[in-house]
């Protein structure tokens, strides 16, 4: 649910990075944070456990520039990927404007990807959203590892709608900004279309 402020001339949107545990959601945000001009970003917040696993969410506010005199601000969130944090994931999806599904490309994580994808569809549905109708992109992360599944196979499993998809190596930043730009653009296009 976006927030359009005519008084301060701002458009605010919420993007959520979803995916199985250890797929690289937090790493995406850390890379974006590290490579963004200080004027365009706020503080990155990570609510994590002592072992640096996301406990509740990571949060990164970003400014993307102006459209017709309106500042566009995106609030990026990650969900905790571990299966038992489902109640928290549902809360973070509330009011979402766009979703990035980060898949872990390693063959042994195939089942975890499918489980998380089903969980995303289910949790969105519970809140009255339909994944097929909201701005949504897929990122196949960890493409630098030796044991990755072929893209075609991953696509069949977690991108049946053939939404925009990106190969990525979040630790080096490959594909990270392409993914962000694609979802941000879809969000703005959807806002325009919805009026």
């Amino acid at each position: 649910m976006s927030f359009i402020n005519y008084s301060s001339r701002e458009i605010n949107c919420k993007i959520v990075y979803y995916g199985p545990g250890l797929c690289g959601k937090t790493t995406n945000l850390q890379y974006i944070y590290a490579r963004t001009n200080p004027d365009a970003k706020g503080k990155m917040i990570s609510l994590a456990t002592e072992t640096e696993r996301t406990l509740f969410f990571d949060f990164l506010p970003l400014s993307l520039g102006e459209i017709r005199g309106f500042k566009t601000r995106f609030h990026l969130y990650t969900v905790p990927g571990q299966v038992f944090y489902d109640a928290s994931r549902k809360l973070i999806l509330k009011g979402v404007d766009g979703v990035v599904f980060v898949a872990d490309s390693q063959i042994e994580r195939t089942e975890a990807n499918i489980e998380s994808f089903d969980n995303l569809e289910h949790n969105l549905y519970e809140q009255g959203y339909d994944l097929a109708k909201i701005p949504y992109v897929v990122q196949y992360n960890k493409r630098d590892l030796p044991n990755v599944a072929p893209i075609a196979e991953l696509r069949d499993l977690i991108n049946p709608e053939q939404v925009p998809e990106f190969e990525a190596v979040a630790t080096t930043g490959y594909g990270v900004f392409d993914t962000l730009k694609a979802v941000a653009k879809l969000v703005l296009t959807e806002l325009k279309r919805g009026r």
């Binding site: 459209i67 653009k185 325009k192």
Partner: peptide, 16 residues
């Protein structure tokens, strides 16, 4: 009236 009725696809493209 909505700001989005004035925004064009080109405006969005320019942002990126």
């Amino acid at each position: 009236p909505s700001i989005f009725s004035e925004i064009t696809d080109e405006d969005i493209d320019n942002l990126f």
